[in-house]
Design a protein around this nucleic acid. Structure first.
Lengths: 276, 276
DNA sequence: CGCCCCGTTGACAAATATCAATATTTGTGG
DNA sequence: CCACAAATATTGATATTTGTCAACGGGGCG
């Protein structure tokens, strides 16, 4: 079951154009943390789609920076079902678990083929001590994840299926846009099945399908075989049950940071969504 | 609505016996962070039960260390319902939001009368720069909160009402025990109503009541007028749908840290629960 | 004493899951 | 390029869980 054989290296990642500098640990504001992390990393790691990056219960002996691809953080139930906890995009920090070196309390699986930058735990400790900014940045990233998780809790706990699904699609759309500003609304690739959407929203795949049907009939969004098409951003925001007053802070929380481009892009997105 | 008038000070908190040293920011392992924080804090703040510590949408200009009492982190819905995101016990760090100084994306309300230690944001930045351990500790705390939030996601997303409620009661019980080791199982005070339990588990107060009735009929737990009584720990773990294999890691995640007493106590708790 | 918050209970409605059958799309090997 | 297999999506009938509305009980506190 533990498919995380340590399949390693090939082309080393070029820190100069690494995605982790856009939204990850290496995006520290004061110093450019990229060369710092480069000094402490041990190697790269490639994982095939569908394989575990970190299996549930495995010891976490290293920090991973997700450089390329999508991962999913998940929990398994006794009966084989799963709950998806978080979708990780490039820049995500993986393997930093409460209780240094403890066993992972949730799994991390590659949704696509994935490239990771590996920093052994001892090295990471050293990096932190000599570069306090990294600790701060890490705290910030963890806090942002917590906020996202909180908004998922609200969605799952208090919203109906339609709102949950709209919320998730909107979130993924905005997070994608923040990373790859080129994409058009009309046709975007998400490496998910409807089953994944169900696992993330606490619904059945079957029910997700029905609700998606409704959203399509209302000309709001289409999601079909990993292709997302947003037909009406306004209605989508509405269907997601997001107070339009809180839309801007919400989008900002999803996008990178206080840094110039990050915010500008997220704000533009929010406005485009909120306006016409 | 924003009830967080800055009601201030009276008896200054004595850092020497502050609860934040047991499980909070001041529990840094290497250096004793207590004197450090003491140097940067500006004052104490007292908030009455029921009042907001931080209202939703308020700017966060300071970090709060929860010194005494319980708080609840919550989100409001358009129709007035709420989702409880987290219960904060002494040691909790509040007001550290993604996007320094940004508006709070969730509220913090006092469940009991509460005492907080206030560190203005600028001071906090300075403290971090001169004491890197604090940044690390903060990242660790945030990461632990994220983990807890993940387990709530799993509970709400994939478990039935009975399991969710059992899970929450067990969590609160264990967290209380870790802080106040004196308490007996047979009669413990939790400053909650059944409505709160519903808001935390994504259920209605009415339904919570019914399920609690069932748990009592099965001689598992009683919860009545803020008093919790665990009748059968084993059955409770079972009802919570926790894989007994994962019980120990789970309790460790709830309790303080790798520090001697923390772990020992949590492990003992887990064993006591798992055994007789 | 009386009020108010909290808890309790019942009848009914709505949302979602489950089970099962069928259709569509993608990917793969000739 | 085609044929086929596997994965994914779609649809219907029915069961289960949970929510809603409404009424009532009980206990603490002024």
């Amino acid at each position: 079951m533990s498919t995380s054989a340590k399949n390693s290296v090939s082309t080393p990642v070029d820190c100069a154009k690494c995605r982790a500098r856009v939204d990850g640990l290496c995006a520290a504001s004061h110093l450019s943390a990229a060369p710092v992390v480069a000094r402490y990393k041990s190697r790269d790691r490639h994982v095939k789609a569908g394989q575990d990056v970190i299996g549930i219960g495995e010891p976490c002996d290293a920090i991973y920076n997700l450089v390329e691809g999508w991962v999913v953080l998940y929990n398994l139930l006794a009966d084989g079902r799963q709950q998806i906890l978080h979708f990780g995009l490039p820049g995500a920090v993986l393997g930093f678990e409460p209780g240094g070196g403890a066993l992972a309390t949730f799994g991390v699986k590659a949704l696509t083929d994935v490239v990771l930058c590996v920093v052994p735990r001892e090295n990471f400790g050293r990096a932190l001590r000599s570069h306090p900014d990294i600790g701060m940045r890490l705290a910030w990233l963890m806090s942002r994840d917590r906020s996202l998780s909180f908004s998922h809790l609200t969605s799952i706990g208090r919203h109906g299926a339609r709102e949950r699904i709209a919320h998730l699609l909107l979130e993924l759309f905005i997070r994608c846009r923040a990373q790859w500003p080129g994409h058009r609304i009309e046709e975007m690739h998400l490496p998910l099945t409807q089953e994944h959407i169900g696992d993330a929203t606490g619904l059945t795949g079957v029910h997700v399908n029905r609700v998606l049907g409704g959203l399509k009939r209302n000309s709001i969004v289409e999601f079909h075989y990993r292709r997302l098409r947003i037909l009406d951003p306004d209605k989508l925001v509405d269907a997601a049950g997001i107070d339009p007053h809180l839309l801007l802070p919400w989008t900002q929380r999803l996008a990178s940071e206080q840094g110039a481009r990050g915010n500008a892009s997220a704000a533009a997105m929010a406005h485009r969504l909120a306006a016409a």
